[in-house]
Amino acid sequence: MKYKISNLTELQISALREIVNIGVGNAVTSLSKMISKEVKIEVPGLKVELIEKVPEIAGGADIIVSGVIMHLTGDVEGYIMMMLSEETTETICNIITNEENTDILDPLNQSLIEEVGHILAGSYVSSLSDFLGLNIKISPPMQTFDMLGAIIDHILIEMSTKAQHALLFDTLFMIEGNRMNGLFLTLFDPDSMDIILERIDRMI
């Protein structure tokens, strides 16, 4: 590892934040078009945390969410996770299926949410790829409805064999300003962080 993620410069941090901002911005624009509703995002947070603290930072290990996880491969390795609260999941399903009170546990609706996550992550990742000039592939999505900690712990376990800290990008988004909300989490492998930071250093 060339760079220490606990030791980034201000310039590197703002460049990273900007890249994520553009990526998530593109993703929510796709979401907004899909459901014909306004979707707002917060300025992405960028945190360097002990891996075992990640569930707390993401909102709590026991909050129940609809989670979609995708594995990133290619020039960089990592994970993208989209977490939606129960209400948000239902809202998105209601809008897309044009029904009321959809059952979010129905397999059809689960695959619908899975596909929404895939589309969002797809536009996010293609914007990252373009910006950084890296080839990043995205795996098929995996969706489940469960406790946040349980959904992501195997990813944190995998990360923890390679590093102690994780660089965590989290972006909250809101649909039409309601309390319904969602969260995007991105985690990169330590070696992949090196590659990304090298690209950034060349640019700035």
């Binding site: 603290k53 569930p55 290990a61 406790m147 712990d153 195997h154 944190l156 376990i157």
Partner: peptide, 24 residues
């Protein structure tokens, strides 16, 4: 008790850990 964390308690205090997936 957080992830990768442990604690000891004495009667009547309760201990809890949240959201176990692949962890034990």
């Amino acid at each position: 008790v957080g992830m990768a964390d442990s604690a000891v308690a004495r009667k009547p205090v309760k201990l809890t850990t949240l959201g176990l997936g692949s962890c034990v």
